[in-house]
């Protein structure tokens, strides 16, 4: 369970996130939808306590990332914007390294790593060094590494970027399975079809502000459009007059 209340963050005087509030519940997939530069990555980075919000407040399972970053990180598994692997380590070693940093025991790690390799269908590449991996293989390993400690909350920043159809489907199946086991899944995307296909709730962000929050049909109703893409464009354009492009994605 994640709640975000009026968080704000700026870089060198430019507001990346002006005021964002939403909540992501356990047993649901929440989508953070917005165009490039809307503030999605900055918002997520504040959730996993890489950035400190200037104002506003965040809770992850009732805890504040700023006052208890270590505890919060234990409850979070994240696939961030950058998802580099260590190319001289095998896929399995990459996953195990993060498990060790999460303080997992060797026995526990053996079991969990085998389980994840099976779940994500990467058995064939598990003991190869990651240097020559395809984009899809890399994302799968990065996801396994992110959830190795079985976090209650799973955060993903544009997880399907650069993935082909079959990898995207495998990822969706994995996220649905996580939701059905009662976890809180939050992911960001700029592709509406994807959010529609997967999410129980959608939070639309544009120019650092939340412009809509609800189920897919509620968003259509609110905008009075029948087509999803029209609805998205009309939502995102609402505030475009208030400020220019605020990019915070790195």
């Amino acid at each position: 369970m994640i709640t975000v209340d009026k968080i704000k963050k700026s870089f060198a005087g430019v507001d990346a996130v002006k005021s964002v509030s939403f909540s992501a519940k356990d047993g649901e997939i929440t989508g953070l939808l917005g165009p490039n530069g809307a503030g999605k990555t900055t918002t997520l980075r504040m959730l996993y306590s890489l950035y400190q919000p200037e104002s506003g407040c965040i809770t992850v399972d009732g805890m504040d990332p700023m006052s208890a970053p270590i505890e919060v990180r234990k409850k979070l598994g994240a696939l961030p914007d950058s998802r580099g692997l260590y190319r001289h380590l095998t896929a399995r070693e990459n996953i195990r390294y993060f498990g060790q940093l999460h303080g997992m025991s060797s026995v526990e790690l053996d079991k969990r790593t085998a389980e994840l390799i099976d779940l994500l269908g990467i058995a064939q590449i598990a003991d190869r060094r990651t240097a020559g991996f395809s984009q899809g293989e890399r994302v799968k390993v990065a996801i396994a590494r992110a959830v190795v400690h079985q976090p209650q909350n799973i955060l993903l920043d544009e997880p399907t970027n650069g993935l082909d159809v079959s990898s995207t489907r495998a990822l969706r199946a994995f996220l649905k399975q996580q939701r059905d086991s009662g976890r809180c899944v939050l992911f960001s995307s700029h592709i509406m079809q994807e959010v529609m296909a997967l999410c129980d709730r959608i939070v639309v962000i544009a120019h650092g502000l939340v412009v809509a929050d609800g189920r897919a049909d509620e968003l259509l109703e609110k905008t009075g459009k029948t087509d999803l893409e029209d609805a998205f464009v009309s939502l995102v354009d609402i505030d475009s007059s208030s400020s220019g492009n605020v990019g915070a994605q790195t």
Partner: peptide
Amino acid sequence: GERERQSLEPLLMVPVP
């Protein structure tokens, strides 16, 4: 190197000081 390989962000997210 970690920065260029994009592995720094995941690393800084682990629950370790």
